[in-house]
């Protein structure tokens, strides 16, 4: 039953998004704009600084993720549908998990476009180790979205939520950004340091486990006034 609720919420978000594609298009275009802005800021004499591609990729993911989180919950606020979700007897952590999976799917889709774009614009060999890259991106995105989904959901009834979301989210997700950027940077080195990659991945996995658990645990008290 728990899994069924997760599935229902996820499928509902997916259907809504497919109808309008609003968040997908705006998030993706915003991410691409970020990449370009950073390209103009950092590329000198046609060359990006060493490891710059890794940083730019993750900055784009973090910024676009914040935008997507805000928009997704703004949509639930418009007809107060989040209230309706909370009024249903369905397990509230299941609602959280459904929303989280939706955000992760959306960001993954954005990353599928972003990675080749960044690789192309910065002549970075991002796609040299696709499996490692996929693992890093997935664990990093889950960690970022786990905290972000909870914060965006709880901020839905706060004033000035648009600006408060990044203010709260970035300091907490610093470990994800550091680990994501560094691990992606390792992939760009000529020789792959697997041991180091494993350290960063372990950190990301631990972060995911701890914060998804914490979010599931605190979602109920945070959503009741």
């Amino acid at each position: 039953m728990f899994a069924h609720i997760v599935w229902l919420v996820l499928r509902k978000d997916f259907t809504v998004e497919v109808r309008s594609l609003e968040i997908a298009y705006t998030t993706l275009f915003f991410a691409i704009s970020c990449v370009l802005v950073f390209a103009f800021a950092l590329v000198q004499e046609g060359r990006a600084p060493v490891g710059g591609a890794a940083g730019i990729l993750w900055i784009a993911v973090a910024f676009a993720g914040t935008l997507a989180l805000g928009r997704t919950f703004e949509r639930e606020r418009q007809a107060e549908t989040l209230r309706a979700l909370l009024l249903a007897p369905a397990a509230r952590p299941a609602v959280y998990l459904g929303k989280l999976l939706g955000i992760v799917a959306l960001l993954t889709a954005a990353e599928i476009v972003l990675v080749p774009l960044v690789a192309l614009l910065f002549q970075a060999s991002l796609l040299a180790h696709p499996v490692w890259l996929a693992l890093i991106l997935l664990t990093g995105t889950v960690g970022f979205a786990a905290v972000g989904t909870l914060f965006a959901a709880m901020l839905i009834r706060a004033r000035s939520r648009d600006v408060l979301l990044p203010v709260l989210l970035y300091p907490i997700t610093v470990p994800v950004i550091i680990a994501g950027v560094r691990a992606t940077g390792v992939l760009l080195e000529p020789e792959l340091d697997v041991g180091l990659l494993q350290v960063w991945l372990a950190l990301l996995v631990c972060f995911d486990v701890v914060f998804v658990t914490l979010a599931l645990w605190t979602f109920e008290p945070l959503m009741t006034e």
Binding site: K12, V16, R19, T81, P89
Partner: peptide
């Protein structure tokens, strides 16, 4: 909550979904 039904002032419907999808979604949640 399973025994309470609420018609809110803000309707609690997803405008992008059809009436049937809205009803089926909430039927599932209940």
């Amino acid at each position: 909550r399973a025994a309470i039904g609420v018609l809110g002032h803000d309707l609690f419907l997803y405008p992008e979904l059809s009436a049937r999808e809205n009803l089926e979604f909430f039927a599932g949640l209940y």
